[in-house]
């Protein structure tokens, strides 16, 4: 149904040992599987069911999402800047599709 569009907001550079904020959003309908279409047929569930963030290859944040989460799920969390590295973000959808983004962070 939807063509999900993922997006993150992360500072370009952070000072070492400083806490920084990560914001992540994905345009997604989060179809609950509990609705019917105009013909009375159940619209199958299709939600983003998991979000993972890795920092330098190491998993640093993970959350499972469920039907009650709103459309366009928005997440905000904090990480500690340890070293230069790649932040990888991935959203997993029902049916197995994943949507990913990465962001290289400079630690000064």
């Amino acid at each position: 149904m939807t063509t999900p569009i993922p997006r993150v907001m992360v500072p370009g550079s952070v000072r070492k040992n400083e806490v920084f904020t990560v914001k992540a959003i994905i345009q997604h309908q989060m179809e609950t599987g509990l609705r019917t279409d105009s013909a009375g047929k159940t619209i199958p569930r299709k939600i983003i069911n998991q979000f993972v963030c890795r920092y330098g290859g190491l998993e640093v944040f993970r959350t499972d999402l469920h039907e009650a989460v709103s459309a366009n799920p928005f997440l905000e969390f904090q990480l500690l800047a340890t070293e230069n590295g790649r932040l990888e973000f991935s959203w997993r959808e029902d049916g197995g599709a994943t949507y990913s983004l990465f962001h290289d962070i400079l630690v000064t």
């Binding site: 569009i5 997006r7 907001m9 914001k23 959003i25 345009q27 366009n72 928005f74 905000e76």
Partner: peptide
């Protein structure tokens, strides 16, 4: 179309 709420931006 992408919509970004105030809480994101």
């Amino acid at each position: 179309i992408e919509w970004l709420p105030s809480q994101f931006t």
